[in-house]
């Protein structure tokens, strides 16, 4: 068990390292070094910096040194919690992305929770009542869910909401709460606004998880231990919920590891369409403006959050499956 956790943890560390390299590459990709871009941006905004300051910055980031030193310096800054400056805001990156990163995670986790609570019972129903009318209906909805990319779904729903219900959907807060400090009322307001983005983000995953759950459960239902459980005199509901469903949860749980990055990914585009105050729109503006510190930090942070999410889901998987717990 310990070795399993250790292995997963090491993998998580390696993944984080790979992500830092990728983020660094993204920062480096645009032509010219970022101090030049930074200086240009400051000049155009009317607060030029002196030659000496620029040189000091170059030295701080090690721009006159080889690539790997630059990378190490940047890593060092990251580890100290210094993510550099965001050009357009002329503020430290940390200040700008803090709240938005949290909201990104809130939206993603809400979508995943919704997916689970919906996909699990429907998957069970579809397997136990295979080829029933309900099974066909859910299969059909599932296919639609897979075929409609989530940003298009957002687009269509927004249009429908605007045109037929005359309401603007989008955002995570009502106007009166947007800038207000956190309070119970604000949280409730957030929860209300969360449902639609979570639904949109979760639909494709829900469809896929229903199919996975249905297929797994159909396999499990044929296994002898189900007959054993029935022969003990348990009620049918108890038999199914305690034994095959439990077994079918395994492959189901092992998909969350990959599902989390997928949802975070999707939230970026959906946030743009629904104008959610997550890091999505910020990343796009940063990339378009070549504000590479901001963009690189966002990519890095999303990656790290995902890795943590994946690691947690691995722990959940271990908790669910005694075979991993005993052997690992």
């Amino acid at each position: 068990m310990l070795s399993y956790i250790l292995r997963r943890f090491l993998l998580a560390i390696v993944t984080v390292w790979a992500i830092t390299v990728l983020a660094f590459v993204i920062i480096q990709l645009p032509p010219g070094d970022f101090v030049t871009i930074y200086i240009n941006a400051l000049q155009s905004s009317g607060s030029p910096i002196s030659y000496g300051q620029a040189e000091a910055m170059r030295a701080q980031y090690g721009l006159d040194q080889p690539m790997y030193i630059q990378y190490l310096k940047w890593m060092g800054m990251m580890l100290q919690g210094d993510f550099g400056m965001a050009l357009a805001w002329n503020k430290p990156v940390k200040e700008i992305i803090g709240d938005r990163l949290t909201l990104t995670m809130v939206v993603s986790i809400a979508a995943i929770l919704l997916t689970w609570t919906v996909a699990l019972p429907i998957g069970i129903y579809s397997a136990v009542r295979q080829y029933s009318l309900g099974d066909y209906v859910f299969t059909f909805i599932g296919f639609i869910g897979i075929a409609v990319p989530n940003f298009m779904l957002a687009l269509i729903l927004m249009y429908v909401g605007y045109k037929y219900f005359n309401m603007s959907i989008g955002g995570l807060f009502s106007p009166q709460y947007a800038e207000a400090p956190w309070s119970l009322a604000k949280v409730l307001d957030l929860l209300q606004h969360l449902i639609l983005p979570a639904l949109i983000l979760g639909l494709a995953g829900t469809a896929q998880l229903i199919r996975i759950m249905r297929a797994n459960l159909l396999d499990e239902l044929r296994k002898p231990y189900v007959v054993t459980a029935r022969a003990k005199g348990l009620s049918e509901t108890r038999v199914i919920l305690k034994y095959p469903v439990r077994a079918a949860l395994n492959p189901f749980a092992s998909t969350i590891g990959y599902y989390f990055p997928y949802v975070v990914s999707g939230s970026i585009v959906v946030s743009l369409v629904l104008s959610l105050p997550t890091v999505g729109p910020l990343l796009l503006t940063a990339l378009v403006a070549q504000d590479m510190f901001l963009a690189g930090t966002i990519v890095l942070m999303l990656g790290v959050m995902t890795v943590i999410g994946t690691f947690v889901s691995d722990l959940i998987l271990m908790w669910i499956d005694p075979r991993i717990r005993m052997e690992g």
């Binding site: 296994k223 002898p224 231990y225 007959v227 054993t228 459980a229 029935r230 022969a231 003990k232 005199g233 348990l234 009620s235 049918e236 305690k242 034994y243 439990r246 077994a247 499956d321 005694p322 075979r323």
Partner: peptide, 28 residues
């Protein structure tokens, strides 16, 4: 699925069968 049949299963009639590998659930 009725109560009487379920009370008989396991109480009055026990069953063992072929596959000892898979007759128990691996999760409990």
């Amino acid at each position: 699925d009725g109560a009487l049949m379920r009370a008989i299963r396991g109480k009055d009639i026990g069953l063992i069968f072929q596959e000892p590998m898979t007759s128990f659930s691996a999760h409990y």
